[in-house]
């Protein structure tokens, strides 16, 4: 029992105690950003790794969460007036859509409920008709593309291409303060830890077995009397909710939300991160998001253009040589070591 939880406990201690003590504020902020992405990756690991649903539109859910949070932050700062970007684009009255987001409870619940509702609607429509596999992937990708165009086009509502930025305080705390950022980091790390444990519990439950069964043989599951569409919709909605929550956390941590952060490319990048980490293992998804986030920062600091080549190449190499990702390689190595010791 203790042995089983040892790896998680070690990582938790490092993340919650060592990292805030050792890292300088700038690096800690970056780590918080990667952990936000890791929450999305966890959802992808659940939906794709365990459920076989390749979702290329997680950026949409991430964005819904992020924009909900950003709207709340903008409204508290405007103190009854109009947010800055609306004044610039000549909007004179606060749009009706924005009004309820002045309430933090409403904004935070919408950050999760909005994505969940969208995922349930889309999932019901798509999975009920037994549209799956690549079709589903393409539809979610089209969703991401459409969402970006919509956000850019509705300048007065969303801030257009620039999105929303210049956030100064959250619940009365100054966002520029190191202590606030450290607190935010701890919140993000805590949320990720709790969600990871919950997801692992879910995957190990009977429901999780059903999900894997749907992934491996949807028709057989149907013949056994289960409803695969329901299983898939619930999983898809859970992963969407996680992405939404991650988006809401991302905004105060990074200080911006814009269409460029949630389109086709960022959505795919996260899927790639999961593939690199290892899609069959939940921890692999989380690891992949952190590793890829770190690699992206490190390489684009050195040579900005080279990153795209490297990312593309990494992609090709991982898919051809190690389709199970880092987690898969680690398992193979561990297995070899064990059998070497046994002989």
């Amino acid at each position: 029992m203790i042995k089983r939880h040892l790896p998680f406990a070690t990582v938790a201690v490092i993340a919650l105690v060592a990292a805030p003590l050792l890292l300088e504020p700038f690096r800690l902020g970056l780590l918080a950003k990667y952990l936000c992405y890791a929450i999305v990756a966890l959802g992808i690991g659940l939906a794709w790794g365990k459920g076989g649903m390749l979702t290329l539109g997680q950026g949409v859910f991430f964005g819904l969460g992020g924009y909900s949070m950003a709207m709340y932050l903008k409204l508290t700062e405007a103190e009854g007036g109009l947010p800055d970007f609306m004044v610039w684009s000549g909007v004179e009255e606060l749009p009706a859509l924005w009004v309820p987001f002045a309430n933090p409870v409403f904004a935070l619940s919408m950050a999760v409920l909005g994505p969940v509702v969208l995922a349930v609607v889309l999932g019901t429509l798509v999975f009920r008709q037994r549209v799956r596999g690549a079709y589903f992937a393409i539809l979610t990708q089209a969703l991401a593309a459409a969402m970006v165009i919509l956000l850019v086009g509705q300048q007065g509502l969303t801030g257009g291409t620039n999105g929303m930025t210049n956030f100064f305080e959250l619940f009365g705390q100054d966002l520029a303060e190191d202590s606030t950022q450290r607190g935010l980091y701890l919140v993000v790390a805590g949320v990720l830890g709790v969600l990871y444990l919950a997801t692992r519990q879910l995957v190990n439950s009977r429901y999780g077995r059903l999900l894997v069964a749907v992934r491996d043989g949807e028709d057989r599951v149907r013949f056994l009397g289960y409803d695969p569409a329901l299983v898939k919709t619930v999983t898809f909605a859970a992963s969407a909710g996680m992405a939404g929550l991650a988006g809401a956390l991302f905004v105060p941590v990074v200080g911006i939300i814009s269409p460029a952060l949630l389109g086709v490319v960022p959505s795919l990048e996260l899927v790639v991160a999961v593939a690199v980490g290892g899609r069959h293992v939940l921890a692999g998804a989380v690891l992949g998001a952190v590793v890829m986030g770190y690699a992206k920062t490190a390489f684009s600091e050195q040579f900005a253009d080279g990153w795209l080549y490297l990312q593309g190449a990494l992609f090709i190499v991982v898919m051809t040589l190690a389709s199970k990702g880092i987690a898969g390689v680690a398992q193979t190595v561990a297995g070899r070591l064990r059998s070497a010791r046994a002989t």
Binding site: G133, A137, L268, V271, L308, Y309, I316, M319, T320, S323
Partner: peptide, 18 residues
């Protein structure tokens, strides 16, 4: 492995664009 080809070819597309 259709879903894998999607990711693989996306990597190729990144390289070609750059």
């Amino acid at each position: 492995r259709p879903l894998d080809t999607l990711l693989l070819t996306w990597g190729v597309s990144l390289v070609l664009q750059q």
